[in-house]
Design a protein around this nucleic acid. Structure first.
Lengths: 193, 193
DNA sequence: GGAATTTCTTGTCCGTGGTCAACATTCCTA
DNA sequence: TAGGAATGTTGACCACGGACAAGAAATTCC
């Protein structure tokens, strides 16, 4: 049940069996169904979630009900409304399941406890966040500088897995494009897959 | 010389005098002049930099030589090409001084050493990166969802200090707008300051 | 204090990509 | 297995904001 999580942590730091045991006790296993929310705008984000299997998306809704996806998560990724989780203030994000999904869940207090009980986890999270920052920087630059077509081309080049896993209209939302626009771009690129 | 740095760290964790001494030994003090580079595209980013005083910008250049600013830094902020710094690969960013600036500099090896010699710094950097992630998330959403005018309005609302400190054409670059566009927006908002 | 550079404003023009709507296709699920 | 929902395609139209250029205003630097 914890194999995926431990494998992920051990990419970054080494764990003793004792530490693994300690870590495992802070998490709860959970299954959710397609379309089920794990967070809604206005909730306090109580948990950070590690995805064992499946697909989640986090997004905001605009005034007209339009979805703006900020992040996808699948096997081996963490997901939460980090701001809401860390500061325990109302969330601005929704998170729900694109398909049936298995999670490992840790609460805000346990997250803090975990870093105290297993200090190497500070190192793990520091490295995890370093990597996230690098990714977000790339994405910021991509959104700021490039045309719609270039944005999609860069996704193909740098993140092909997402195109395999995620339906096209959700990719459009993630790139900040209208679904119609992305459809036209793919046509132009000769069904760029 | 280290007051600004220690104050910044102690907002997030507590330090003993011994730890302060240890930390200070990893940093070098440096002054640079307006327009001086501290990093250029293609360099390996050897240092992470804490800004004591002054103003820096980090940016990319496009094919036509256009500047796309990713981040500003002033008193109390860190700046570097994180990807280049962490992975020791060629930088994609330029970083230079908008005005004369004072820095505290730490090398890649010393950064790693520091987290080992003063473990509480893992905690500090973890929290620092958590906060950066929250900020970048906000910015991603802002760039993806909003019109030019809304982007500027949000900067006024959420980041008024930047508008005080940074010349307008650099703000335009940061928001991904043409300088002319930002000028027109300010006019529309009635010199929105 | 005057020249040079940097920064800001305003005008004209035009392309990218959004909106809306109709239709086609694929996929769930009862 | 049929009906509905979700997803993807295409067309017509048009607004936002970019490009370019000329000139004004403000800073910087000998």
């Amino acid at each position: 049940m914890f194999e995926v999580l431990f494998a992920h942590i051990e990419e970054k730091v080494t764990l003793t069996d004792k530490e693994k045991l300690a870590i495992s006790e802070f998490f709860t296993f959970k299954k959710i169904r397609r379309k089920q929310y794990i967070l809604q705008e206005g909730d306090i984000c109580k948990n950070m979630v590690f995805i064992n299997k499946g697909l989640l998306k986090s997004y905001r809704l605009d005034e007209k009900g339009g979805e703006h996806i900020t992040v996808f998560g699948w096997e081996g990724w963490w997901i939460s409304d980090l701001k809401s989780f860390l500061q325990q203030i109302p969330a601005t994000l929704f998170i729900d399941a694109v398909k049936d999904t298995e999670l490992l869940v840790i609460s805000r207090e346990d997250y803090e406890e975990l870093t105290l009980a297993v200090p190497v986890m500070n190192r793990y999270f520091r490295i995890l966040y370093e990597n996230s920052l690098v990714t977000k920087d790339e994405r910021l630059i991509s959104l700021n500088r490039y045309t719609a077509e270039e944005k999609f081309q860069r996704l193909i080049d740098y993140n092909p897995e997402m195109i395999q896993r995620v339906p096209q209209h959700l990719i459009a939302s993630y790139l900040g494009l209208a679904p119609a626009t992305l459809s036209r771009i793919r046509k132009r690129l000769g069904s760029g897959k």
